[in-house]
Amino acid sequence: MAEVRLQTIRKSFNKTAVLHGISLDIRSGEFISLLGASGCGKTTLLRIVAGLEGVTEGRVEIDGRDVTSLAPEKRDIAMMFQSYALLPHLSVAENVRFPLRMRGIGNRDEQAEKVRAALETVQLGHLAERKPRQLSGGQQQRVALARAIVSNPKVLLLDEPLSNLDARLREDMQVELIEIHRRLALTTIFVTHDQEEALSLSDRIVLLNAGRIEQQGTPDEIYNQPATSFASNFIGSANLVPAEIVDGPQGPVARLGDGQELALATGETARGTATLAIRQEDLSLTTSGAGPAAKIRTRVFLGARNRYVMTLAGETLRALTPNDVVLADGAEVRLTVEPARIRVIRG
């Protein structure tokens, strides 16, 4: 257990700046997610904490100690790689014992006991003597997790560990990660591009965009109060619609590009040019009734739901509806949105 402090971290590769001064305090025992699209610098940031990458500028502290120029093996961290990085020439048990052996933790018997306990934790005790290549992807994943937690590191670093798993295994692993984190209370930094994963696992989410922190907060804050249009588009892939906020007879309304209007919450104070962020699941479609008219372009059947892609005032909108709402391509529909569910982003 340890706190991690990053101070104005800058990083450039061949004069291309990847991180533009990131400062972040991670509390002891916190599960924090670095969320962002590929190329936003989240993995680079994680590798800087691990010591696999140096910084161009800035300072990294683990547990109050400056580790900026410390080699990775001296940082007392554990990292789980996207490709698992199990050592192919060692058995599962030897892989899990590896960090204990290299750090000289305990004698042979104590190590064997720790390895057994770690493998029990991920329910792989029965495969201890296998070689990694004899395991399925999900099993390799759990071996990598056991190997990461066995030495009880100060900080646990997870680099998109779930992205190579199929949907079902991923859900299982998420639960496993939550439970392990609850039990061991390890300070955990989790890198992902999957917003659902970040929302379901983290105490705090740090949303990165092009090497800067776009927004940070609890999953609830990030989801319900996105601060920028990037945040609202990235989290929940909300629709972004440019609009002019004006006063209507019954309170503020948003005037869209083609003159159609959407009612906003009465408490909305912004006026003038703005961007509306509307979640896909908050749009309801009707064939008759009030609300702006849009034209259906495509229906994507998702099983439990339908996704409709449509055009409204020249903008592409997506809506998630129950799967019993069936509309033909080219049909004209009316859109209704609960005014309180529309987020107005100034500028």
């Binding site: 691990a50 010591g51 696999l52 080699a71 990775p72 093996e73 940082r75 961290i77 554990a78 990292m79 790689f81 490709s83 990085a85 050592l87 192919p88 590896f98 960090p99 290299m102 750090r103 190997r147 030495s151 670093l157």
Partner: peptide, 15 residues
């Protein structure tokens, strides 16, 4: 040889 194996070893305490 996957270069990440060496990185993994470094994070596990190997010089």
């Amino acid at each position: 040889i996957d270069g990440r194996l060496e990185e993994a070893a470094r994070t596990m305490g190997c010089s």
